[in-house]
């Protein structure tokens, strides 16, 4: 029954990168093998593909190409200098490092939350389930000022932490909090449908055969949900690396300490240093591209592994 509930496209993850259908990966399903497209009686191929390419070029490709062209105007030495400057290195380290930590924390907390949501019934479960999407729906600037106020030394949470000597707002810890906030739904919403779909009979069989609960989870459940977890992790990570709005309010923005790479791009722009801004931007763009391909691969793995998409 629960298998039927969750459809393969799992609409709850808006930003899942490529929930690629295996059909797309197999060779052309029908039509002539000589051409680059299969035969179809449905009209509109030229029109819609033409419009797609035009729209994609105008809005995404040409603007992003401008970034590469601008960076290509620089000498290789200049590019290396920009990328190896202490400030740039630190900003990249902070962005990628904290995003990694935040994604890892989200992995653990996401696992707990998904397990509670999928496996247990308790009062308020549906509300809890709906609340997961708040970070998707709440604009980043609003999240930024709300988190900053909350965790400042005179805030609701910050005033509890201050006596313990823990400062969150205006420290790298604050960045971490913001990145955990925005990343959590990615892990939960990627893993949730997979866990819901998991064939319970396997677990029951394992239990019947005398396997302990932990063994069952380790041997049966974990391998099945692992690809989904990794996908969620990668999505949360990708989102966190580029995040700007929620972080700049809470970060303190101290160079080399709590200055994230997107902020450094903005600062370089404000200092008239376009070369620096575009070089860092290109670096992040390439990283984003690589991440996308990794996510893409993970998702394919996940689907073949669980056979969900069949």
């Amino acid at each position: 029954m629960s298998q039927a509930e969750s459809t393969a496209e799992s609409p709850s993850v808006p930003a899942r990168a490529v929930p690629d259908h295996p059909a797309l990966l197999t060779p052309l399903p029908r039509g002539d093998a000589s051409g680059w497209r299969g035969h179809s009686v449905i009209p509109g191929f030229n029109l819609t593909l033409g419009l797609t390419l035009l729209w994609l070029s105008l809005i995404v490709l040409i603007p992003l190409a401008a970034l590469f062209v601008k960076t290509a105007e620089l000498t290789p030495e200049h590019i290396v200098n920009i990328l190896t400057s202490t400030r740039t290195l630190n900003a990249l380290k902070i962005s990628f490092g904290l995003s990694l930590v935040a994604a890892a924390i989200n992995l653990v907390l996401g696992a707990v939350i998904v397990w509670a949501l999928v496996r247990y019934d308790f009062p308020g479960r549906r509300i809890l389930d709906a609340l997961i999407d708040i970070p998707f729906a709440l604009p980043t600037a609003v999240a930024g000022i709300a988190l900053t106020t909350l965790y400042a030394e005179n805030g609701w949470i910050g005033s509890w932490l201050a006596p313990l000597g823990i400062r969150v707002s205006f420290t790298p810890l604050g960045i971490l909090v913001a990145l955990i906030f925005i990343g959590l739904p990615f892990v939960v919403r990627t893993v949730q449908p997979v866990l819901e779909d998991l064939d319970h009979e396997l677990e029951e069989a394992a239990t019947t055969l005398g396997a302990g609960r932990l063994t069952t989870i380790r041997r049966i459940v974990l391998p099945a949900v692992l690809p989904a977890f990794l996908t969620g992790f990668a999505l949360a990570f990708a989102r966190a690396v580029g995040e700007y709005g929620s972080v700049i309010f809470i970060a303190g923005n101290l160079p080399n300490v709590s200055e994230i790479a997107p902020l450094l791009i903005v600062i370089r722009l404000e200092e008239f240093r376009y070369a620096d801004a575009t070089t860092i931007a290109v670096t992040m763009l390439v990283a984003a591209f690589i991440l996308l391909f990794i996510i893409n691969g993970l998702q394919r793995w996940s689907e073949t592994r669980t056979g969900r998409a069949g």
Binding site: A17, L28, R30, V60, L67, A238, G242, V266, T278, A288
Partner: peptide
Amino acid sequence: KFAFRGKSFLITLIDLPFSVSPVVAGLV
């Protein structure tokens, strides 16, 4: 609705703005 080569790549391109930092989106 159609089968053609390069479809997978096209989908990746459509997804690209998801992982581009908003700041970079403004900068371009």
